[in-house]
Simulated scan of single mutants.
Amino acid sequence: MPNFEKGATVKDRIPYQAPSDRQPLTLPGGARVAVWTIVNVEQWRPTAPMPRAVLPPPMGQPLLPDIPNWGWHEYGMRAGFWRFLNVLGTRDIRATFAVNGSACRAYEKACRAAHDAGWEFIGHGFVQKPMHMIEDQRSTIIETIQVIKDFTGSAPRGWESPGLTETDETADLLAEAGIEYVCDWVLDDLPVPIRTKTGRLTSIPYTVEINDVVISAVQQQPSDEILRRGRDHFDRLYLEGADSPRVMAISIHPYLTGVPHRIGYLEKLYDYILSHEHVVMWTGAEILDWYLGQSANVSHKG
Rank of each mutant, 00 (worst) to 15 (best):
S139R: 03
S139N: 03
S139M: 06
T140V: 12
T140H: 10
I142D: 07
E143M: 12
E143C: 11
T144N: 07
T144E: 07
T144D: 04
Q146S: 09
V147K: 03
I148L: 04
D150A: 14
F151H: 08
T152L: 11
G153A: 05
A155I: 06
P156W: 00
P156T: 02
R157K: 15
R157S: 14
R157E: 14
G158R: 03
E160C: 14
P162L: 06
P162K: 06
G163K: 02
L164F: 12
L164R: 06
T165M: 08
T165K: 02
E169N: 13
A171T: 10
D172H: 10
L173W: 01
A175H: 04
A175Q: 03
A177E: 02
G178H: 04
I179S: 01
I179G: 01
Y181H: 11
V182H: 05
V182W: 04
D184M: 00
D184Y: 02
W185T: 05
V186G: 02
D188G: 07
D188F: 06
D188V: 07
P191Y: 01
I194D: 06
T198W: 11
R200N: 11
L201V: 00
T202E: 07
T202G: 13
I204D: 00
P205N: 04
Y206P: 06
Y206F: 10
T207Y: 08
T207E: 10
V208F: 14
V208L: 13
E209C: 13
E209T: 14
E209F: 14
N211A: 05
N211S: 04
N211C: 06
N211H: 02
D212N: 09
D212I: 08
V214E: 14
S216C: 15
A217Q: 12
Q219L: 11
Q221D: 13
P222Q: 10
P222T: 08
S223Y: 07
D224F: 09
D224N: 13
E225L: 15
E225Q: 15
E225M: 15
I226N: 03
L227F: 12
L227R: 08
